[in-house]
């Protein structure tokens, strides 16, 4: 089966009002080329589930987001995501604010076909008071109450990986796959952009196959976009683009705002975008961060 698609074809399969999961973590390995394709589209009223970075900030700034399920939105070295903050402070988006681990449980519940997973996380905090839909349950085995973290069922997930084959075998050879396996499993459709499209024989070596975290049946489409995580990182191939993130963040303070950023960089295609940010080679030589 050949699951190769273009970014435009992926976005063509998304619909207004869908719940979309976005893989990666903060400024790391985000499917930014697919996010940019959404920015170029008419899609709207999306519910996003994300360990958020500029993916969330950009989609909020562009008015694509109706509701955000989040624990944080951050660029790490720039702790506060400027465009997300503005959207929140304008009251422009509904939110379901949860703990990082609760999000993992919600994705697991969806992946495993469970209505919820009980947890003590969130008890005693405003997570339970600010989310009226979040129910507490009694345990049949003890006298305590527990948060019933509901399944976060996703209509679609967008994920970026370093290597994939056309059948949807996806490899994350960087040090952390984050929760991307659960995003893939929690979604009805999972679309994966990859830096390098490889022949299936690439995975024959056990050390390569070991870095595949979900089965290809959980992958709906594969889009070959070298540099597609930019300006986020795709370890071990390239780091995140610090000057670009700074310029993106500063745009929130400009009169033109995100619109000015988008006009400068977004273009009509990923080729336009990459030309505007200095070319693919510049992306691929961005140094990896050290913490």
């Amino acid at each position: 089966m050949d699951k190769q698609m273009t970014a435009a074809e992926v976005v063509g399969q998304l619909e207004d009002g869908m719940t979309i999961g976005i893989g990666g973590w903060g400024p790391r390995r985000k499917p930014m080329a697919l996010v940019r394709e959404i920015l170029r589209s008419e899609l709207q009223d999306l519910t996003l589930v994300s360990y958020g970075g500029a993916d969330v900030g950009m989609l909020c700034a562009a008015g694509k987001v109706k509701k955000l399920v989040f624990a944080f939105v951050s660029l790490d070295f720039i702790p506060l995501e400027a465009h997300f903050r503005q959207a929140r402070q304008r009251g422009a988006i509904e939110v379901m604010e949860i703990d990082e681990g609760m999000m993992l449980l919600g994705l697991r519940a969806a992946a495993w076909g469970l209505p919820y997973i009980p947890t003590e996380v969130g008890l005693g905090t405003d997570i339970v008071t600010r989310n009226p839909d979040l129910k507490l349950v009694d345990s049949p085995y003890d006298d305590k109450e527990w948060v019933a973290m509901p399944a976060l069922k996703l209509d679609a997930s967008l994920i970026h990986v370093d290597h994939a084959d056309k059948r949807g075998v996806c490899q994350i050879s960087g040090p952390d796959h984050y929760m991307d396996d659960m995003f893939a499993r929690a979604a009805a459709k999972t679309y994966v952009s990859c830096d390098e499209l490889v022949d299936s024989s690439y995975f024959h070596a056990p050390e390569q196959a070991r870095a595949v975290f979900w089965e290809r049946a959980a992958t709906t489409g594969v889009v070959h976009i070298p540099g597609g995580a930019h300006p986020s990182s795709c370890s071990p191939l390239y780091g995140f683009d610090v000057p670009h993130f700074k310029e993106y963040s500063a745009a929130a303070r400009d009169e033109a705002g995100f619109q000015g950023y988008a006009e400068k960089f977004l273009g009509a295609s990923e080729a336009d975008y990459q030309a505007a940010v200095g070319g693919l080679e510049a992306i691929q030589t961005l140094p990896l961060p050290s913490y």
Partner: peptide, 23 residues
């Protein structure tokens, strides 16, 4: 500040604090 729906100053989010604090 402000309201929860439109805070005066939005920061990081709850992050891992709920789980850390009870675990």
């Amino acid at each position: 500040g402000g309201s929860y729906e439109a805070p005066k100053t939005m920061m990081l989010g709850a992050r891992g604090f709920p789980g850390n604090s009870i675990s």
